[in-house]
Design a protein around this nucleic acid. Structure first.
Lengths: 196, 196
DNA sequence: ATCAATACAGAACGATCGTTCCTTAATATA
DNA sequence: TATATTAAGGAACGATCGTTCTGTATTGAT
């Protein structure tokens, strides 16, 4: 009953995500969101409650779409070093996307407002998704003898998770993105056997 | 001539640095700075010009004090793998400093407002200081045969610079700081010879 | 056709931001 | 001692922030 809404909330959520991703939480204003989504202020509040609540919804949306898609390969039961390599390649490609690289929304938000409980929870979830996926893949690799000698799968997973975070952060700065190639290359070699 | 100022500008700069470091640019207000430095608004403007200008001065101050002290060992002419190890140990200690870990002011600022020219310039300077210092040390190590076979010094320097950035970023989140140990440990092993 | 319910559109709100003005106090110099 | 100069202290400014209110339009149900 009542007048039907003229906009698609999911579409608005996606546009809001792009904005927060590119500009960060503080530099994204309600006016920006209104302009980019085409949804009026009041309607945004009716749908999401507040700027903070919208931001949290955006973080969840990011986890469910961008992160899930990126980690899909790693969470396969039989994932191995091949999936790890493909995953790192994807990260490298994102970092190489030029001057407009936005990095990772979760990593950015962790630095910018990680002291807020609701954000910290999403950051924790992101990190555990990342570490767990890598851990599964490296565990399989370990059993198959594809892993660097002396490297525990969990240790390698924590290491590579850190590498990914670094790649995301570095990709946001013009001078930093030059480092991503070496970072990912050496990291991958560090987990693969010497004779492979 | 004229009334002498009651405060020490350098002391104020240092207090301002602590505040920006802990809270970031956007969440640090002029009122916060007045409260923490004990210097009145007008005097802050007289000394530094604006919030932005103060922030840039703070970044320079950070580079000249915190970063310079941290990199001092690496920039010694005869620096080698020992200095690299000590440097990474210091980074790890900073990351382990508990829940109140602030990470690195430059890395934080790069993520939060790296799109501003004045900030990007400091970020670039930071990254080149880091890479150059590591490059010198790894170059010496290479000549002494202390470096992992097949690893170019410059490539290793870029790799380790990325590791440092990751450690700084991860140290700001409670769940991330758990990863720093593995990150630094595996990274150090990745640049040292297998039989060492 | 009428009514209840919902959304739209935009004005307007209080709070807070960075910044500046104004008065008073304190010093160096003449 | 008188004066010029600079800083302190605090009120006040315009702008912009996130948020809410008001009136109108548009639908489903009775």
């Amino acid at each position: 009953m009542g007048r039907p809404r003229k906009y698609d909330p999911d579409r608005a959520l996606d546009r809001a995500m792009q904005l927060f991703w590119a500009r960060g939480y503080h530099e994204t204003t309600l006016s920006d969101l209104v302009g980019s989504t085409g949804v009026q202020r009041y309607s945004l509040y009716a749908s999401f409650g507040s700027k903070d609540a919208l931001f949290h919804a955006v973080l969840d949306h990011y986890l469910e779409t961008v992160v899930a898609r990126l980690l899909a390969g790693l969470h396969r039961k039989d994932a191995g070093l091949g999936e790890v390599r493909r995953f790192l390649d994807q990260v490298g490609t994102m970092a190489d996307s030029g001057a407009g690289a936005k990095g990772c929304l979760i990593c950015n938000s962790s630095v910018e407002c990680g002291d807020k409980r609701e954000v910290a929870a999403r950051v924790a979830r992101y990190q555990s998704l990342l570490v767990d996926g890598l851990s599964v893949a490296l565990g399989n690799s370990h059993r198959r003898g594809e892993l660097r000698a002396g490297l525990e799968p969990d240790e390698g997973a924590q290491f590579l998770a850190g590498i990914v975070v670094a790649a995301c952060v570095l990709s946001r700065s013009p001078t930093g993105s030059d480092l991503v190639g070496s970072l990912l290359g050496v990291a991958l070699r560090a987990v693969t056997p010497v004779l492979l």
